[in-house]
Design a protein around this nucleic acid. Structure first.
Lengths: 346, 346
DNA sequence: AGTATGCCCAAAAACGTTTTTGGGGTTCGG
DNA sequence: CCGAACCCCAAAAACGTTTTTGGGCATACT
């Protein structure tokens, strides 16, 4: 049954071509001090015999793995966090092009995540690490910096002294808010993503600065923090409505929050996109299909992922960096960014 | 800066506790012939010194990796194939519970995929393999069987003599079609997923059998194969409309096709859910948000993933199997499965 | 002609574990 | 009191590579 039960090691192919093991190794690994004739012969023999270097053995000897680990954080929602997953594609492309394998691990809690990083690093399972959901002060990053282990993050920390790539959330917050102000709104709520993450604070700051720049004072009642559960936007919106805060526009930290908030509005007889303006962020697929279509910001995740991957490679190649890139998001106008209604819901 | 620059090997901890290397190894790996006193002492020392066994070294020696690779196929669409990704969560949970790490690799083309499997297996990078998108006769499976390498697939082949888990697509096809027939339809189109995949054929067979069971003859004009690009459902639907085939109901192989087909209908002034009934499959998030809501079939992907993971573990533990599970999908009735309109689009 | 210079290659050491082999001490039975 | 049985443990081999060391053989230079 087994076509090729026997699989030779490097000594096998050395014996087969009548040369020494070291010559075979050097030929296969592209060293210069081997004649092209020898190289050809070795390569052909390796091909014929179906030889492949054992990953464990070469990894043990060289102390590197040609592997990069992408750690994706939980919790996920049923929407399968489109953000991280969109990235993955670009990352994989960039890494594969340079001969690195991509490994993905998931962590269900923050503590777990930390432990997984330790294990990956200390057991030498990868050469570099990628992760997101960074916090203003992030233990993971400090730990990795202490050990001088290569990594790139999606998102910054407060002192952003490492390699990172990030969408410009400050600008998103500013632009979204300004757009709503220009439409005539002056009671603009902001439903934030969890504030333990750095980017949420950037968005919030953009929101506040835009208000201030246009002479509007910020009202703490209009700011509400949402979590990443599916219902979170609805909960926050419901409370806003119940408290009679009466925003005429809502800027949401992400589309899931926005969609959920829109559902909540409807339950109270408020028509999003008519009675209340809504702007989201991320442009998840659903955003295009709700009615009215959700106005939101699109991030080019493919490109973001590619940059992430390329930064990782640059770092692994020894390029000292720091490598940092802030990416612009693009406004996707659809149906929910409307002027204030005449008779407004209060 | 580096808190703990020096990281001892196993000989380091052996020296530290004044015992031999082998004793430390046996103590750490839970062998029985080491006194509990010794074990405690070793474990404590290992903890204090921050010792972790090198992955490469132990993998080289034991010839296994405690790692399972999930290979996800391309192409993806912008919807980030919710099917595979939903699985991943359950798989990871099941594997992690048994101490296996999950590795994800992506392949952009079928040939690439094959090469990645070869590389993963021959270089000994994982103990087991998981993948989907199986075909009626699938080279990957034959190759793995020849080498007796452990794997579990999502989906069967024609001779399903290996470990697999799959949603019962035959039943979905049958039920969807029967439901439409009972609503009074007799011109039911079927837009299939790519027929190179086994499951597409099962769905198709269910569709045909339901027609036959209810005394309807099948019309090849009403069957159209779609691919996995974003526009595919629209293209097929447009052609059906253009040819004047005039279905009163459309059963789609997946929701993306359905949503896309619905868009196409609208462009021709046909109202899905009023003029033409639509049933999809997969229950992607968008399905709940289009208007009217798309009637579709939900698969419990978490559970599917867990079963997949558990099968893999069982196989790796030496349980001979075969392990095979057919999972039932659940109809989610929403707004698009309606009786034929009075004045019908022709 | 003799020596330096490249180019190519063989032998052996090293990577850090696990597992095998074999043996020393206690304890117990004869 | 001696031997067997039973725990426990030390030394060394093995896993399959890559890299170092050192040297042979041409060719070019003095």
């Amino acid at each position: 049954m087994a076509e090729q039960a026997y699989r030779p090691g490097i000594r096998g192919v050395a014996a087969h071509v009548g040369m020494s093991v070291s010559t075979v190794s050097r030929a296969l690994n592209g060293y210069s001090d081997v004649s092209s004739d020898t190289r050809r012969k070795v390569e052909r023999a390796a091909g014929e015999l179906g030889y492949r270097a054992s990953f464990a053995a070469s990894s043990l000897r060289t102390q590197n793995t040609q592997t990069v680990t992408f750690m994706v954080s939980k919790p996920w929602t049923k929407f399968v966090d489109p953000f991280f997953l969109g990235l993955l594609d670009g990352v994989e492309l960039a890494l594969q092009a340079q001969g690195y394998a991509l490994q993905v691990v998931m962590a269900r809690e923050y503590e777990k995540e930390f432990e997984m990083i330790r294990s990956a690093v200390e057991r030498n399972r990868c050469d570099g690490l990628l992760f997101g959901r960074t916090r203003p002060v992030d233990e993971r990053i400090e730990w990795l910096q202490d050990r001088a282990f290569p990594f790139v993050t999606v998102g910054r920390t407060d002192k952003a002294d490492h390699d990172w790539v990030e969408v410009d959330h400050y600008k998103i917050g500013y632009q979204a808010t300004e757009r709503l102000i220009r439409l005539g709104h002056d009671r603009i709520a902001h439903l934030t993503t969890p504030l333990r993450y750095t980017y949420s604070n950037h968005t919030l700051q953009g929101y506040r600065d835009a208000l201030h720049a246009h002479g509007l004072s910020r009202d703490p009642e209009l700011e509400a923090e949402c979590y990443l559960s599916r219902r979170t936007g609805a909960d926050a919106m419901t409370e806003l409505i119940a408290r009679g805060v009466g925003p005429t526009a809502v800027f949401c930290g992400n589309d899931m929050i926005a969609v959920s908030a829109m559902e909540s509005m409807r339950r109270f007889g408020i028509r999003p996109g008519t009675d209340v303006a809504v702007i989201g962020c991320d442009d998840i697929p659903v955003a295009a299909y709700v009615t009215p279509g959700l106005t939101t910001f699109r991030q080019d995740l493919d490109s973001l992922g590619m940059r992430l991957g390329r930064m990782m490679v640059a770092r692994l190649r020894g390029d000292p960096g720091p490598h940092q890139e802030l990416i612009e998001a693009e406004l996707i106008p659809r149906g929910t960014d409307v002027p204030p209604a005449a008779g407004v819901a209060k």
